[in-house]
Design a protein around this nucleic acid. Sequence first.
RNA 1: GGUGCGGUAGUUCAGUUGGUUUAGAAUACCGGCCUGUCACGCCGUAGGUCACGGGUUCGAGUCCCGUCCGCACCGCCA
Length: 446
Amino acid sequence: MLTNLNNAHTGDLVEVSGMIHNVRVTKWGGFIILRKSRGLLQTVVGDRSQFFNEQGEPVAMSDLCREMAVTITGKVNEATIKDPAAFYNTLEIAVDKVTILSRPSTTEVVDMNSLKFGDEETLLRYKFDNRQVTLRNPRDMAILKVQSTIAKAFADYLTEEGFTQIFTPKIVSEGAEGGANVFKMDYFGKQVYLAQSPQFYKQIGVGVYERVFEIAPAYRAEKHATSRHLNEYISLDVEMGFIKGQEDVMNLEADLLRSIIERVGTVCDHELKLLNATLPVLPANVPMWKLSEVHEILFNEHLTEDHRGEDDLAPEEERAICKYAAEKFGSDFVFVTHFPSQHRAFYAMDDPKDPSLTLSFDLLMRGLEITSGGQRIHREEEYREKMTRRGMNPDNFRFYLDTFKNGMPPHGGFAIGLERITACFLNIANVKEASMFPRDINRVAP
RNA sequence: GGUGCGGUAGUUCAGUUGGUUUAGAAUACCGGCCUGUCACGCCGUAGGUCACGGGUUCGAGUCCCGUCCGCACCGCCA
């Protein structure tokens, strides 16, 4: 069976299998639109076409319906297909034979063809209630194909750069922040948690492999209901040793993203066109401001309310500074650095020039925070001192602190939210649409 | 947790100031037609406990209260 059908096969007799996405009947025959892994393939029914059911008995074309699994043999012809969902848009198959392999048990299959996208917010419920089928919509397929490509490009680039992929536990005894927004669960009578971040383990990984990354779920028990939050999301985590400062981490992330953008541009051309998406612009010098500078710029330029003195960016500011960076510097990305110490996790290294600030950064893209990162503390005593200052009991983190007790290089890292970066690449309003099966406060199925 | 908007055929929506026999349209499904369509088109059939519960009224899809659910925004975060 062919897996790579292209115009080099013009004139050949080929066999292709797929699901019937649509059937258009005319008096002279019609069209069977097959759905393949990357999109649609048009086949043309004519006088010579024959149809067979699962038992090999001849049947009529009118027996065909949507979501049947079929194998079609026929000749490849050149054609111009206008449907943007057609992955094979320069060829079609003149049908000799259609064999039904399997059929749905109802003709009223879930309608995934007439789904709307973009601002049509109210249909999200229907889409997610029937996600197992609505995923077959070519545009949903395209979103997750781009996501898959992002994850692959992430792993490939980092592997090239000497990083080792690690796999860390998601059942943990203590949350990374020691905070309240973790899911609790019973573990043979003992209370444990779902990991909200692989932070501890990826730092441990640096002591082993110098440079590590992980692609894995993270869990947040926050009762938020926004278009940018999930209670289970895929975290693209990076941690690297022997850094001279957090700039090394930021530069690596910029290079990594450049590589991902390039890969998506070449591999997912069809998906980008179908979704009408424009890839983000990442200039050689990404705009970079301290948090306090962002507050000042936005206030002085009269772009937002006065947020000076606040210890984080308001969502309004995230959108405004990104707009500002796009207009003034032609960048879809903005680094924001030096967040106040009390606002960041205990493992963030304080700025020696101003201990009230940390050597930490966020990366914003098109108005949304897609990354948090920074340099970490690498000496045990510093951890103990900072944890005690915060009212945390260092003894609860013994396995973690033992890592530093036994020696660790200066290091830092970051994490990218996979659903967020996918949604930002594709200008999708709600990150849930960039999740195969989103988990939110009211949804754990399908 | 807070604020706002919403819940009407399988789906997406319209439904005027509370009042017209049977609550409409598009789409999907089913039947028929169509010489190349591409969200194909045309004709027809069928499809509804107007989210649920209570209230006001001669009369409620429409007004009021409660509950449940959805979306957006905020706090928070990736």
